[in-house]
Design a protein around this nucleic acid. Structure first.
Lengths: 199, 199
DNA sequence: GGCGGTATTGTGGAAATCCGTAATCGCCCG
DNA sequence: CGGGCGATTACGGATTTCCACAATACCGCC
């Protein structure tokens, strides 16, 4: 899926001018007049970044931000406001917003921030796709295989694993071979490398 | 080393009142009237967090922040200012400041932020100390041992490693045993776990 | 020159892993 | 009820790792 800038602002003049700005820079932009409109039109599978106005009729920008994060949406969010104060900006950034800019703002500045956000999202997406692939393979493992994997990852001998699981060594070997197969690795070390950063 | 709050502010009234506040909450506080004073008194090995005023005679808070970061100091920094604006706050947070609060501020709020910062720094310190320990052991390895380690970590058999390094398998075994000894691990998998996140 | 550290290699055996073949048992599904 | 699947186990052999004992060579340092 191509990246888009999702612009949510209740001011039509802003939507038009920013929409034009992004299109002129070759960035695909989709504008929404309210948080509700955005939610209705975009359920999931988004790619790109969000440009959120703070004050809007109905749901506010920060409320939409919180809702999306709660739903697991990790799109970079740039807040855009004409009436922001310091605590608001601090709160937004500490909650993980990508940026917080005041209107009116320099077009080039804004485009640069957006491009940075898009770049971040692209690498995020790449990283999470490999993570997903690993998780997918992980999910295909049997209960026993997962148990054996844990102990293998703990650096224990098959002999010890067999003892701890109260099964024969041969069974451990079978599970081990099966899980290596499923995870697409040839040795325990490769498996450890694959799971770098988990459990 | 115990944790301290390092307070840098050119307003004596602030230094006194905040100093009293922290002492009353059982938090050790050291106050400095300028960035230069702080730098002169505290070279390295600090533990705790920094409370930095933005506008000061001489070096400003953000300038001191940048300087410390450039020197590798990762202490959490809370900016404290009576004349802050949104871009300033955004810039500070995006550069990694822990927080940005406006004066006058609620005492409890400030103490809470400081306690959060101290807690973060404590876990940071713990993490970096284990990382240091690993790096220290890593530094004690011989060139050959490091080479062998790389290949072991790549999941290769001793046979293959011997071939690639153009040495006998027996030599590889020796290096392998030696480096396991030096790194304090018993198996290749443990080694991989130890180096999770590196190279 | 001797001493210590690193790198190198060999022999040989104990221990562990790897793997093909084969079989039993229990459970869920069509 | 038969088939598929996961879990279990056994035998036996090939491969690999682990380790003690032993030895040679290079290099820098006192």
């Amino acid at each position: 899926m191509n990246q888009h800038v999702y612009l949510v602002d209740d001011d039509e003049a802003i939507r038009d001018s920013l929409g034009w700005l992004f299109q002129s820079r070759g960035v695909d932009c989709r504008a929404f007049a309210s948080a509700e409109d955005f939610l209705a039109a975009c359920d999931g599978g988004l790619s790109g970044c969000l440009l959120l106005d703070i004050r809007m009729d109905g749901m506010s920008g920060p409320e939409l931000f919180d809702l999306l994060r709660a739903r697991g949406c990790t799109l970079p969010v740039i807040f855009l406001t004409g009436h922001g104060d310091v605590p608001m900006a601090v709160s937004a950034l500490k909650k993980g917003a990508f940026d917080f800019v005041e209107k009116p703002c320099n077009d080039n500045e804004l485009v640069n921030r957006v491009l940075e956000a898009l770049s971040l999202e692209a690498s995020q997406r790449a990283a999470s796709s490999t993570a997903d692939s690993v998780n997918h393979r992980l999910a295909a493992l049997t209960t026993r295989e997962r148990q054996v994997m844990e102990l293998v990852l703990a650096g224990k001998f098959n002999k010890v694993i067999a003892d701890e699981l109260q099964i024969s060594m041969r069974t451990v070997e079978v599970h081990r071979a099966n899980l290596f197969e499923k995870m697409g690795v040839k040795t325990a070390v490769e498996l450890a490398g694959l799971l770098t950063g988990k459990r």
